[in-house]
Amino acid sequence: MNGFGYLRPTTLQEAAEAYAAHPGARYLAGGTNLVDLMKLGVERPAFLVDVGALPLDGIEELPNGSLRAGATVRNSDLAADPRVRDRYPALSQALLAGASGQLRNAATTGGNLLQRTRCPYFQALDKPCNKRDPGSGCGALEGVHRDHAVLGWSERCVATHPSDMAVALAALDAEVELYGTDGTRSMPVADFHRLPGEHPERDTEIRPGEIVTGVLLPAATAGMPSAYRKARDRASYAFALASVAVVLRLADGAIEHVGLAFGGLAHKPWRARRAEEALRGAAPTPAALERAVDLELAAARPLEENAYKVPLARNLALDVLGRLAPAPAVA
């Protein structure tokens, strides 16, 4: 590891200025991913701007009924917050399905969104990877790719986004809030992460020097039934092979609102817009749920080793949809 400078600013302005003043700077939060990547040599920052002392560690209710979780709130604290557990159960469940107790105590809201893929080719300096080293090729496409993407991948990159939290946030219509020298802005979490396309080196829509300041959980989905389910190789402490977050409300026997997102299938949390469109207004019969999920997964293009992910994701989605929207009783 190369040496690097370090600063722990207490204001956003100082942080953004320090980043701008130091070429090769990176923001450091919990460090569970960045420090690991520095040890591997994948990240070689010349300067670290520690965001740990910024005033971003609170969870606050806003007058309009939404809930803002600061960027440096620990994953464990966000998952345990009674307001999150009661109003956005899928988010609490997704956080608790990720990593280990120790890692959740360090990992932050902002860092979780910005974590890098765990694709082994990305993490190995002696392997080609367009995400780490643009133009070097994709080792996974014709290599070992059992854990890789089935939706939205490109010839340049077949990596998946590893977050559980972001999948729940995407389904819940959460927004990510950003601070930069040009001001503040926000965007849906579902639009924050990118598909790889020609530029897999860009994971998200964040601009250089911008800081994630928090996520906004909207009043609109507060209190709606929601749940997260994840399939992995062992019962605990493993990344998703496939996962699903569902937010669903019935009215008069029909689906009034539905948010459905998949994890482990793509370069980003995959918001299943086609399935949602098919479900909105429909009675939640098993046939209707199956048709909607199949419509979404028809876009899947499995690689040689990961075709199992399509039926796995289908079954996860049908299970959670079925639990949140019990089939109407047969007359």
Partner: peptide
Amino acid sequence: TVLAGGRRLNSCLLLAVT
């Protein structure tokens, strides 16, 4: 694993300067 600031954490991933 150690306890830091009252939490259990992986000390291998914590930069001492923080």
